[in-house]
């Protein structure tokens, strides 16, 4: 126990680790909350699309810093700008197709990947470790500036969710009723998507492009299996998300594993375990 505490103290004494773990604990709450709306509205793929489009923003920030030899804006901010831009592009493209509205997402995802690849190839001196951390996340990627930005955005998101909670839940479960009861559905939907873009972009460095959307989807998938109410499902998903994040962090540090991958693997392990447990329980109950 003493040695465990001393390991913990050692981690907390390291500045980079402190910012990273605090950010991850915040993400452990935000991701399932925003993810629940995404899942209910059947927009799971949008999180994946926006993370790839945000990547284009981050890499553009790197390219600009590379070409002009100074940072016009923090690459994270470029990621946020692209994330929000991506939400509008998806919405615009959706209107072009009547029956294939979902086509807008793979198009924007491909655009994001193609632009990222282009910007990275034009930037000189970008090493494979940096690219690896963008794709799979790194605990070294969260500096003091990133952490302050994360705190500000978290505060804004909490205010938005607390003030619009009833409207968000009504919209999620019954859009027609939401319109009839006077909720400005288009505006609220836009705010939700922008919130999603913010969460994805700000935590991109920590978890990685390929896995950030998983942290929004997998814990809430556990919540759906266990929860008896919306609140209950949210609490369950936050608990599993936090266990995965904290455990994943220590494991990734201790065994030098990629942070995002470790966290998501733990999350998916919990999901599969619960699925199997439910299946076995059902068989047992049927026999009884």
């Amino acid at each position: 126990m003493i040695s465990l505490m001393s390991i913990f103290d050692f981690f907390i004494e390291q500045d980079f680790f402190r910012y990273a773990i605090y950010s991850a604990i915040i993400l452990g709450v935000l991701a399932p909350v925003v993810g629940s709306v995404v899942v209910i509205r059947r927009l799971s793929f949008i999180a994946n699309t926006l993370s790839h489009f945000s990547l284009a923003g981050v890499t553009m920030g790197v390219l600009i810093a590379n070409v002009f030899q100074f940072e016009l804006l923090n690459p994270t901010i470029w990621g946020v700008i692209f994330g929000v831009l991506g939400t509008f592009l998806i919405e615009k493209l959706r209107n072009f197709y009547k029956n294939y509205k979902e086509l807008s997402m793979p198009i924007i995802l491909s655009l994001g990947v193609a632009l990222s690849s282009l910007f990275l190839s034009l930037s000189t001196g970008v090493d494979s470790k940096f690219i690896n951390s963008l794709l799979f996340g790194s605990i070294l990627a969260v500096g003091l500036t990133d952490f302050i930005l994360i705190l500000i955005i978290t505060l804004l998101i909490i205010i938005f969710i607390l003030t619009s909670y009833k409207k968000i839940v009504t919209l999620c479960f019954d859009e027609t009723f939401a319109i009839v009861s006077g909720i400005n559905v288009k505006f609220l939907q836009m705010l939700i998507t922008i919130t999603l873009a913010f969460v994805i972009s700000f935590f991109l460095n920590l978890i990685g492009v390929l896995l950030i959307s998983a942290l929004m989807i997998v814990p809430i998938s556990i919540g759906i299996l266990i929860g008896k109410s919306y609140k209950n499902a949210l609490i369950v998903s936050i608990v599993f998300s936090e266990i995965s994040v904290i455990l994943g962090f220590f494991l990734s540090y201790y065994f030098d594993l990629p942070t995002g991958a470790t966290i998501i693997l733990l999350c998916i392990f919990f999901l599969f375990s619960i699925m199997i447990f439910k299946k076995i329980r059902l068989i047992y109950l049927n026999r009884k």
Binding site: K166, V169, F173, Y230, K231
Partner: peptide
């Protein structure tokens, strides 16, 4: 028309509809 798959209780559904 109602979205069924996600869990939501009667209490939550009604309280969210009530301003």
């Amino acid at each position: 028309e109602f979205n069924y798959e996600f869990p939501i209780s009667v209490k939550e559904l009604l309280l969210c509809a009530y301003p």
